[in-house]
Design a protein around this nucleic acid. Structure first.
Lengths: 143, 143
DNA sequence: CGTTACGTTGACGTAAACGTAATGCATTAT
DNA sequence: ATAATGCATTACGTTTACGTCAACGTAACG
């Protein structure tokens, strides 16, 4: 009777809660990864007994975590960033601090965007050059 | 007489070659890092005796290496990417392959740019929200 | 010619981010 | 009832990207 759920409950649960396995398939990560992120306080799944139940909040956070990783942020960096999105701060000074941190992060991100633009146009130029070489084989051989 | 250089030579050398110390200051990395990159075949400094002399090519590569790192690429990833910029390929099939790889990389980068735009606008939204809360302290306290 | 400064090669250490057993409990299937 | 499945914890292993000595070479300087 403890963990038994009827169909309706099961449906609702899958809406709000997800098991570790469901998370793994949804986000293409291993269980080890999710447990590791919980240990590092990046995720806070609830528990039914010992089993983890991942909430909508956990899913949103995980999405941001995986994004952050793709852009070369460490998990510790990401943990800071996550707090910026999490409006669960108590007093004004903490909010103020989070806000200022957020502005700094934003500046970082916009600098990176500019750098990314540069990388893209560099690579495009390099590819155009390559395309030329591929188009006129004789001259290349001559050089 | 061996390593002795007059002023003109010294000037020209600093133009084309850089010592490990100069590289470190120019790029804000440690000697260990540069030696490590050489061991991993990311850089190919020449030698005067045992001393490393970093060329213009090395500097260009290092710039790309550090960029790549900022965007979360592993050194091995970067090593592959560097070959795309390096026009030292022999035959047509290799160039063709490099070109195709370059196109794939370009697609990756443009996808990342889109993602970065999303991250930036998300963070902006989050900060706007935070700004509102900070502006009206009473209502926050009430909730 | 001794010292100082800078460079070299190993060799070993370390922090981050997981992987990989080994072991145990609790439902679920047969 | 027993076997299998799924999830849990604990603990040790691994890879990447360097840091940190230790021991030595050598070039320049007073």
């Amino acid at each position: 009777m403890y963990g038994a759920l009827n169909e309706t409950e099961t449906f609702l649960m899958t809406e709000t809660y997800m098991t570790i396995r469901e998370m793994c398939e949804a986000f293409d990560v291993t269980p080890r990864t999710l447990r590791f992120y919980e240990a590092k306080e990046l995720l806070f799944p609830e528990r039914r007994g010992t089993r983890r139940l991942f909430t909508r909040r956990d899913r949103a956070r995980l999405k941001l975590i995986l994004r952050g990783k793709r852009f070369g942020f460490s998990l510790e960096d990401i943990r800071q960033l996550l707090d910026l999105y999490d409006p669960t701060r108590e007093n004004r000074t903490q909010m103020q601090r989070a806000y200022e941190l957020g502005l700094e992060r934003l500046a970082d991100l916009e600098a990176r965007r500019a750098e990314l633009e540069e990388i893209i146009s560099d690579l495009k130029a390099s590819l155009d050059w390559g395309a030329k070489l591929l188009a006129e084989p004789q001259e290349v051989a001559a050089v």
